[in-house]
Computed example of a mutant assay.
Amino acid sequence: MKTATAATAARATEENWAFPPAEGWTFDQVKRLELPFDWELVDGCIVVRGRTMLWHNHVRNQLAQALGDARGKPFDVVTGQCAMVDAHHVRVPDVIVYDSTGLNVFETECVPISAVALAIEVVSPGSRSQDRVLKPAQYAAAKVPSYWRVELQRDNQLAVHEYWLNADTRSYIPRPERPVHRRELTTDLPFPLKIDLADLLGF
């Protein structure tokens, strides 16, 4: 595959975005692109984010609303926002709960990964390996305290897999006493919360 040289890759363009320089693109090099798809940055390469179904977006929005209603300071909740792991790695979790202390919302493009308290991914057919393996490994390595993986089961009911960070190994472990939530989600992290999961699909 052709690779752009550093001299010709000061900025990604609509013509060269698929051919990163040897050291990879940075967020600052690609953020002004007007590409016909949503994207993330992984190892300095632009990765296309697939389209999602109506149920996926509905569940994402309902989860964000429930979290927003339950949150207390200093936490805030956002969907569709990039989280910057580093200059070459930028992810877009479906929902982010973050500590807003010191963040200027008028100037912040990506939530710093150090501010993320909870990352949530709602699994789609095209994102299974990313959401089950690659993203949680990356979030854990970046010390995000909590991760939820939301799956639609064969009976069209939701299962929420809750993971806690093992700070020593920088890997996630399933929540010990209740690793998978069905019908109702009850947790104290990142703050006390109870959600009727059936209601999230009540549309």
Results as ranks from 00 to 15, higher is better:
1 M>T: 12
10 A>Y: 14
10 A>E: 13
12 A>T: 07
14 E>L: 06
14 E>Q: 05
14 E>S: 06
14 E>H: 04
16 N>P: 00
18 A>G: 09
19 F>T: 13
20 P>Q: 01
20 P>D: 01
21 P>A: 05
24 G>Q: 05
24 G>P: 02
24 G>L: 07
29 Q>G: 04
30 V>E: 04
34 E>W: 06
35 L>T: 09
37 F>L: 10
37 F>G: 13
51 R>N: 10
52 T>C: 05
53 M>E: 14
53 M>Q: 15
54 L>A: 15
55 W>F: 12
56 H>Q: 11
63 L>N: 00
65 Q>F: 08
67 L>S: 01
67 L>V: 03
69 D>L: 14
70 A>S: 08
71 R>C: 09
72 G>F: 15
73 K>V: 07
73 K>S: 13
75 F>I: 02
76 D>Y: 07
77 V>S: 01
77 V>G: 00
77 V>K: 00
79 T>Q: 05
79 T>E: 06
80 G>E: 05
83 A>F: 06
92 V>H: 01
94 D>R: 02
96 I>L: 11
98 Y>F: 13
100 S>D: 15
103 L>V: 07
103 L>G: 02
104 N>A: 12
106 F>R: 08
109 E>P: 15
110 C>P: 04
110 C>Y: 10
111 V>P: 00
113 I>D: 01
113 I>A: 03
113 I>Q: 01
114 S>K: 14
118 L>V: 07
118 L>R: 00
119 A>T: 04
119 A>K: 00
120 I>G: 02
122 V>W: 00
124 S>T: 09
124 S>H: 09
126 G>K: 04
126 G>H: 04
127 S>Q: 06
129 S>H: 12
129 S>P: 04
130 Q>E: 11
132 R>N: 07
134 L>I: 11
137 A>N: 10
138 Q>S: 11
138 Q>T: 09
138 Q>Y: 00
139 Y>R: 02
142 A>C: 10
142 A>M: 07
149 R>T: 02
150 V>A: 02
151 E>Q: 12
152 L>G: 06
154 R>M: 14
155 D>L: 06
155 D>R: 07
157 Q>I: 10
157 Q>C: 14
158 L>P: 01
159 A>L: 06
161 H>W: 11
162 E>H: 13
163 Y>G: 04
163 Y>P: 01
164 W>Y: 13
165 L>I: 04
168 D>M: 14
170 R>Q: 12
170 R>N: 11
171 S>V: 07
171 S>C: 08
176 P>F: 02
178 R>A: 12
179 P>A: 12
183 R>A: 15
184 E>A: 13
186 T>M: 13
190 P>M: 01
192 P>D: 15
196 D>E: 08
196 D>Q: 05
197 L>D: 03
198 A>V: 14
198 A>D: 15
201 L>I: 03
202 G>A: 14
203 F>W: 12
203 F>G: 12
